[in-house]
């Protein structure tokens, strides 16, 4: 039987922790397209993703989950729509310690929301930092509807990443159940 594949997209602004998030749970070394950063203004870290990150979780012989990380810099946003094609859902990573990126995170969220009507959630990363904003304050700053999940996250901790992925999958199940109920009511 042919192996089935599904994908989840991890997006967010530059240096929000997308690569680290995927690296924490991927069973293979993340296939990363990182390049050394040359622009002085963006030299928060040494390298950044320019095309995509790629992680993999094998579920069983028939099913594989791919995790795609989008490039965070705006000038590579032509990759976003390609990566979002057929996604199961998406996670918007936000650096809780850098409020100056919240506006961009909101813009990325709106862009992905427009690509496909798939479930999504927001991961408030770097919550272990003393400078991290409170998750509920971030909800207000990001103008998130109360129904949208925003979860505290530390991308380098596997347990936190697992929780985020599981919450997204629970959200997908809830949507499927809701769709089923509507279908039953309509029948």
């Amino acid at each position: 039987m042919q192996t089935q594949t599904v994908k989840i997209v991890v997006t967010g602004p530059f240096n929000s922790g997308k690569t680290e998030f995927i690296r924490s749970v991927s069973e293979i070394d993340v296939v990363s397209t990182e390049k050394k950063i040359t622009a002085e203004a963006e030299k928060i870290k040494e390298s950044t993703t320019v095309a995509m990150d790629f992680g993999r979780i094998t579920v069983d012989d028939d099913l594989v989950l791919f995790l795609f990380g989008t490039p965070g810099q705006k000038r590579f946003d032509f990759m976003w729509e390609i990566l979002s094609e057929g996604m199961l859902g998406f996670i918007v990573m936000v650096d809780s310690t850098r409020p100056e990126t919240f506006k961009e995170a909101r813009s990325i969220l709106e862009t992905f929301r427009a690509y496909a009507p798939t479930p999504y959630l927001v991961a408030a990363n770097k919550q272990d930092s003393i400078d991290a904003w409170d998750v509920e304050d971030m909800r207000v700053a990001l103008r998130l509807d109360p129904s949208i999940k925003i979860l505290p996250c530390v991308a380098k901790k596997k347990s936190a990443v697992k929780t985020v992925l599981l919450e997204l999958l629970y959200g997908i199940l809830e949507e499927m159940d809701a769709a089923q109920s509507r279908s039953d009511e309509g029948a």
């Binding site: 594949t5 599904v6 069983d60 099913l63 996604m87 798939t118 599981l166 199940l173 499927m176």
Partner: peptide
């Protein structure tokens, strides 16, 4: 929300649900 068809490799709702449960 109406989930897009392309997000699953199968269009059977039971198989889709089983797939998500296996992922979980």
């Amino acid at each position: 929300l109406r989930l897009p068809e392309k997000m699953f490799p199968t269009q059977n709702p039971d198989e889709q649900k089983s797939l998500v449960n296996r992922l979980i």
